[in-house]
Structure formats: structure tokens, C-alpha cells
């Protein structure tokens, strides 16, 4: 009965969501609102199950297509995010380290940064058409700036004495960047990575609602046109779960790489 014991341990975390779901179920069945406007959790679950496993065709054309939709969205997130991380970290380190790079490049970036990525949609569509590319472009825009800003901050706040110590030991500039500045900036860079993965999912879904004909965001918007709010909610929860999962993966990677922080920061306390 191990799982029961652990369930009991998790009781404090579980009772609020369980209570909410039960209340929602009761409210939906009470007839205060037409059931199509606020489908009960049980209905959402059944539709979702059909979307995933194609059981009873309750999700109609989407039956059994969930993994396909989830993969389509994930690929866009992954590609756009990867480009943003590589370019954001490289450029951020360069801006943080070399004064002349900061002077020449940073003003331009600071002017582009306040432009909401969503407002690029029209240009993204005319430049890249209706497919993966505009979505990837938007994901890149959403993820790039948080990665960049945190990388710059991380480099700028590196303890100067560590750089001195490395110089004392004969470190050349490239070595100091690689062996001192980059590792010292990693905690800040990871903070940026976690903010960026949130933006990445947000923008994939937005792009799929407008400029792409596949993925979870597309299903969500399409179901709205067909008044299938059970599917809308199932898509919302799917996106939330995938976002949670990717953030968890980044956290896992972070605790592996930044294991030296344990016992040094408040964050290390809980692991």
C-alpha cells in the first residue's frame, strides 16, 4: 500500500484541486448554464480520451489525433526555443562582456524588445506563409528576449575577483569567458530559460490560432468555431500539461548542472 501512503502525504496539495473539480462538475450538471457553455469535467475527460485514443468519436474529426497535434506544437516550440537559446546566450554573453558590442547592438535590441511578439504576426505570415515557419519565428521572438536579458545580466554580475583570479592563473580572454564567465552566469541564464519556455508555449498557441492549420492551438480555435467547448478545455489543459512538463525538464537539467548551488541558495534547500 505504498501509493496510498504517498497519496496521504500529498493530501495537502490535492484537496483544493479535487474540491474545485467536484464543484465544477456539480455546477455544470445543475443546469444553471447550458451544458455546452461550461461542459462538466467528466465530459471534457471523455472528449479528451477520444481525442487521444479515438474511442467513441466524441471529438469527431479530431479523434485519435492528439499525439499528432501535441507533436506538431512541441516541434515548433522546440525549434524556435532552441534557436532563441543558442543565439540569446551567445549574443547576451557578447553584450555583457564587450563594451563595444553593447554600444553597437544593445540600443537596437532594446528598441525591438518592447514590440509584442504577437504584433509580428502579419509580417510573419507574409514573410513565411501559413505553416511551421511563422510559428517558429514567433516562438523565437518570444523566447529570445528573456534568454538574452538574463544572459547579459548574468555576465555583468560575475564577481570581478573571480576574473582577476583566473587572470592571475594565466587565463586568456577566451578561456576566462568559457571557464569563468559562462559558468558564473549560468544561474541567471537558467532563470531566463525558464521564463522563455513559458513565452514559447504562449506564442506557439497564438501562432496556431492565426497562422497555422495544425497543433493544439489550432484545435482549440477550431473547436471554438464549432462550439465544442469541451474540446477547447481539453486543448487548454493539454497545453498547460506540456508547458508544465517542459518547464520540469528544464528544472531537472538545471538541478543537474547547478548542483554546486545546493546549500548555498534558498533554492537549493528544497532539493
Amino acid at each position: 500500500m505504498n501509493w496510498l501512503a504517498s497519496l496521504r502525504e500529498q493530501r495537502d496539495r490535492l484537496w483544493v484541486p479535487v474540491l474545485l473539480i467536484v464543484a465544477w462538475e456539480i455546477f455544470s450538471r445543475s443546469g444553471w448554464l447550458p451544458p455546452s457553455l461550461l461542459p462538466a469535467p467528466s465530459t471534457v475527460c471523455r472528449t479528451w480520451a477520444d481525442w487521444v485514443f479515438s474511442i467513441d468519436e466524441s471529438s469527431q474529426a479530431n479523434a485519435g489525433r492528439w499525439i499528432h497535434d501535441a507533436l506538431a506544437s512541441s516541434v515548433r516550440v522546440f525549434v524556435g526555443y532552441a534557436i532563441a537559446v543558442v543565439s540569446g546566450v551567445l549574443l547576451g554573453v557578447a553584450i555583457g562582456w564587450w563594451r563595444w558590442v553593447e554600444k553597437t547592438i544593445e540600443p537596437t535590441i532594446q528598441m525591438l524588445r518592447p514590440v509584442p511578439p504577437v504584433s509580428w504576426i502579419p509580417l510573419a505570415i507574409i514573410w513565411f506563409g501559413i505553416a511551421n515557419k511563422p510559428a517558429i519565428f514567433l516562438v523565437f521572438l518570444g523566447a529570445f528576449f528573456p534568454v538574452l536579458m538574463n544572459a547579459i545580466h548574468g555576465v555583468k554580475t560575475v564577481d570581478r575577483n573571480l576574473i582577476r583570479a583566473a587572470a592571475m592563473m594565466g587565463g586568456r580572454e577566451a578561456q576566462i569567458l568559457r571557464y569563468v564567465v559562462l559558468p558564473a552566469a549560468l544561474p541567471s541564464i537558467f532563470a531566463g530559460l525558464r521564463i522563455a519556455i513559458g513565452s514559447a508555449w504562449m506564442l506557439t498557441v497564438t501562432a496556431e490560432m492565426v497562422a497555422v492549420k495544425s497543433g493544439l492551438g489550432y484545435v482549440l480555435w477550431d473547436s471554438y468555431y464549432f462550439l465544442r467547448y469541451d474540446l477547447v478545455i481539453a486543448a487548454m489543459i493539454s497545453i498547460g500539461l506540456l508547458g508544465f512538463l517542459t518547464d520540469w525538464l528544464i528544472k531537472l537539467l538545471m538541478s543537474r548542472i547547478l548542483h554546486w548551488q545546493h546549500g548555498q541558495t534558498v533554492q537549493g534547500r528544497n532539493h
Binding site: 575577483n161 573571480l162 582577476r164 592571475m168 592563473m169 571557464y179 559558468p183
Partner: peptide, 26 residues
């Protein structure tokens, strides 16, 4: 600065991400 002179600072200024032996052999 150069590797022909070793300096010990007022604060230890160790690389916090490296274990003791890696710091010594940095």
C-alpha cells in the same frame, strides 16, 4: 597578470561551481 606569480586574495575567490581539487588545479 601572469602565471609566474601566485596571488592569495583577501577573500578566497574560489570558483563556486568547482570542487576543491578543481579549484586548486584551475
Amino acid at each position: 597578470p601572469g602565471a609566474d606569480r601566485g596571488m592569495v586574495f583577501q577573500q578566497a575567490t574560489l570558483m563556486p561551481w568547482l570542487p576543491v581539487w578543481e579549484n586548486i588545479a584551475f
